[in-house]
Design a protein around this nucleic acid. Structure first.
Lengths: 124, 124
DNA sequence: ATCTTTGCAAAACCTTTGCACTGCG
DNA sequence: CGCAGTGCAAAGGTTTTGCAAAGAT
């Protein structure tokens, strides 16, 4: 049922080449290099189906629109630079938040985001 | 420069009575109990100026529109129930994330969000 | 009386959806 | 061929903005 179209191939290629999580507009711009007339609706539909297939993962930072990155990475979190706004992947995870969880609550998952200056912007 | 209007007083009162972070529509609904014809634009403008004055703080969970809560609370994080979607405040903070920060990066702040079932929904 | 603030409606965004057409299988 | 996928444009939802009128100081 999933057909191989040029558009879909272009979008998958974009993710395989991406160094950072991308938002839909960035995916569109990058995919147009391979399929010039691809439309934004196709990008949204592809992001949805790729997410459903777990081939890409949404990266939703607080107050930001969703970005997406290729799936298959280990559990990790992100760092956002307050100066250049770029998002970086962090290795590992601080781990255990059961101590914060109130009695009677069931902890299923967690999200951690660090903010500050990236190596480039810390110097500037 | 900041004038005392009924609308603004109503919105501040709403926050002083709120048990959990409120989104703009919830603020509007609650404020209408005190000022029936208050408009959504006024709510957004008030949220902006109250945020600038640090009288309320935005609570921006990943993938969610901003909510707001009264300022003055200690540093804390939030728990969102995956069943009822409500947001709860957590006491305390796991603390130190410098170990996750890559070399050359400067850590300034962090955000932690826990997900699962609240005490009411864990039972159901 | 002055000058913010308000309320409404329109505009600006981002994302989703309807529909006829394209093109994969 | 048959249908899923595409592209365009219109619709939806949220937040912002323009402007005349209301109201605080």
């Amino acid at each position: 049922m999933e057909r191989n179209t040029r558009q879909r191939a272009a979008i998958e290629r974009v993710f395989s080449e991406a160094a950072h999580p991308l938002d839909p507009q960035e995916v569109l711009a990058a995919a147009r290099r391979y399929v010039p007339h691809i439309g934004i609706a196709t990008v949204y539909r592809a992001l949805k189906s790729l997410s459903d297939e777990r081939r890409v993962v949404p990266v939703t930072l607080p107050g930001e629109h969703a970005r997406y990155e290729a799936a298959g990475l280990d559990h990790h979190h992100h760092f956002q630079c307050r100066r250049c706004q770029k998002v970086f992947e962090l290795a590992g995870c601080p781990g255990d938040f059961t101590g914060l969880t109130p009695p009677g609550f069931r902890l299923e998952d967690h999200e951690v985001v660090l903010y500050g200056r990236c190596n480039t912007c810390a110097a500037a």
